[in-house]
């Protein structure tokens, strides 16, 4: 009875935690000055324009957008690398424009960048993973523990003493993720971290992210232009010219094929097939995203 009560209480606490808002932006806008050769401002580019969204703790959120849609600019606000021209960004309740809180923001929401080579700072994997905690002033013994833990979390413990130069792109990105995990963040923001990888590397990174999300409860904000990476997300936002053009669960967003094309994105293969089948007169649910679900639906249709 008593332990049952505790269990219910625990579940309620976890539920609350899950509902807690981790990232919140309100009417976020950012302007870059366009400069001529002499460095004089000649015009203003509004890279992002009035983005309001919330990410709950523990969610896996994908932000989609074509080149120039403002998705990288948006990502940099979450890490206090850029400050808003208008609006506010809260990361775990902290206003990112408060300068003395910058380090706390960066520790809460770690960031993985596009080019794996340009974010690894050491010739030895474990030293690179230790870089974040070293900067934070974590005691030596604790750093060693965290390095071992986070390398295990991304499945790279075998390479602890290796040089990153001989690793594949996917492995390098997993090292970069381990480097963020060692800082014990609540959230990882990935700014096109899969864009330079081959399909195998992309799969490795995505699997790692989903596992961290599931098992460690890390909130993931994946910024990409590959739509298929959004298939398993809890929520999807599509950016177009600095504004949110579409938002919702992946099934609903993927159903809006015209709008998606309008945003400069390509539908995943499965969605394209579903659409063509529909055009040909076969009634298949437009929200189907995976090959397995599609075969199932086709089988059911054939049985009828």
């Amino acid at each position: 009875m008593r332990s049952g009560g505790l269990k219910v209480l625990w579940r309620r606490i976890m539920q609350k935690k899950k509902e807690a808002v981790l990232i919140e932006t309100k009417d976020l806008a950012h302007e870059y000055g366009r400069r001529d050769e002499n460095g004089d401002v000649t015009g203003i580019v509004r890279a992002i324009d009035g983005i309001s969204l919330t990410v709950r703790a523990g969610d896996f959120v994908t932000v989609l957008g074509a080149n120039g849609s403002g998705k990288s600019t948006f990502a940099r606000h979450l890490n206090a690398l850029l400050h808003p021209t208008e609006g506010v960004v809260y990361v775990d309740g902290i206003d990112t424009s408060e300068e003395e809180m910058t380090l706390a923001v960066r520790q809460t929401a770690g960031m993985v960048f596009q080019n794996p080579d340009n974010q690894i700072i050491s010739n030895v994997v474990e030293e690179d993973v230790a870089f974040g905690p070293e900067n934070m002033g974590v005691p030596s013994l604790e750093i060693k523990k965290r390095v071992a833990e986070s390398l295990a979390q991304v499945g790279m413990q075998k390479y602890r003493h290796h040089s990153p130069n001989h690793l594949s792109g996917g492995q390098k990105q997993r090292i970069a993720i381990a480097g963020i995990m060692a800082m014990h963040p609540k959230c990882i923001v990935l700014d096109e971290a899969t864009a330079m990888l081959d399909p195998a590397g992309r799969r490795q990174v995505l699997e790692t992210l989903h596992r961290l999300n599931r098992e460690e409860g890390i909130t993931i904000l994946l910024i990409t232009h590959y739509m298929e990476e959004a298939a398993e997300a809890d929520a999807v936002y599509v950016l177009k010219q600095g504004k949110i053009a579409l938002a919702g669960r992946p099934e609903t967003v993927f159903g809006e094929s015209d709008k998606i094309k309008d945003c400069g994105l390509a539908l995943p293969d499965v969605s394209r097939i579903v659409q063509k089948l529909n055009n040909a007169g076969l009634p298949i649910d437009k929200r189907i995203l995976t090959p397995e679900k599609l075969t199932e639906a086709l089988g059911r249709l054939a049985a009828e």
Partner: peptide
């Protein structure tokens, strides 16, 4: 270009100079 990106990546991993830095292997 690489230098610029590396600086961003170091910034985002809380690098702020030698002040208050610890070492994994002191």
């Amino acid at each position: 270009r690489r230098a610029g990106e590396l600086a961003l990546a170091m910034d985002s991993r809380c690098y702020h100079g030698g002040e208050g830095r610890t070492k994994m292997y002191p």
